[in-house]
Write a protein that binds this DNA or RNA. Structure first.
Length: 152
DNA sequence: GCCAACGTTGGC
DNA sequence: GCCAACGTTGGC
């Protein structure tokens, strides 16, 4: 069992959008960064994933999902009609991958970035580090998961 | 809207 | 293989 955090801009995909999906499951596609992709590929069934809303006023961790399908080729990279199309990817040798996530819970309040920064136990979180600031799929330690879960 | 911090691209 | 230019992310 491992723990992760994925970022999303809510005007593109918000955590509430899971509620409109069958079984509250959504493909997590469109990731076009190699380190983020490698993290997607390292996810296992049952891993727990925090969702983070970025680029909005109330930015922060908004809820929890779980991995219900492990990494498989990202169809949007292979579809010329998709905005996320990447001509360098092909079916025989896919460059980009996605997983499927199922919503577990929308937290009753947003755990805002500014607040997370005040929690001493979270000081070394990737999310709060310079290197991780821009990484859209990142690991979370078991201890960090436990603490954040308690706050949500 | 600005811009720091990175990642990627492409000329050489 | 280096590195300048460019593009993107995302906080502020």
């Amino acid at each position: 069992m491992a723990f992760w955090l994925v970022k999303t801009e809510p005007h593109v995909f918000a955590i509430q959008d899971f509620l409109r999906m069958p079984d509250r499951v959504s493909g997590w596609d469109g990731v076009r960064n190699y380190q983020a992709r490698n993290n997607l590929r390292a996810m296992s069934l049952g891993d727990e994933v925090f969702l983070y809303h970025s680029n909005v006023k109330e930015r922060g961790i908004v809820g929890l999902a779980t991995v219900v399908r492990e990494a498989y080729p990202d169809e949007t990279a292979l579809d010329p009609g998709s905005a996320s199309f990447d001509p360098r990817s092909d079916r025989a040798n896919p460059r980009w991958y996605q997983v499927d996530l199922q919503l577990v819970e929308i937290f009753p309040r947003v755990l805002e970035l500014g607040f997370l920064k005040t929690v001493p136990e979270l000081a070394s979180m990737v999310l709060l580090s310079k290197a991780g600031q821009r990484l859209s799929v990142q690991p979370v330690t078991g201890e960090e998961f436990r603490i954040i879960r308690g706050l949500g």
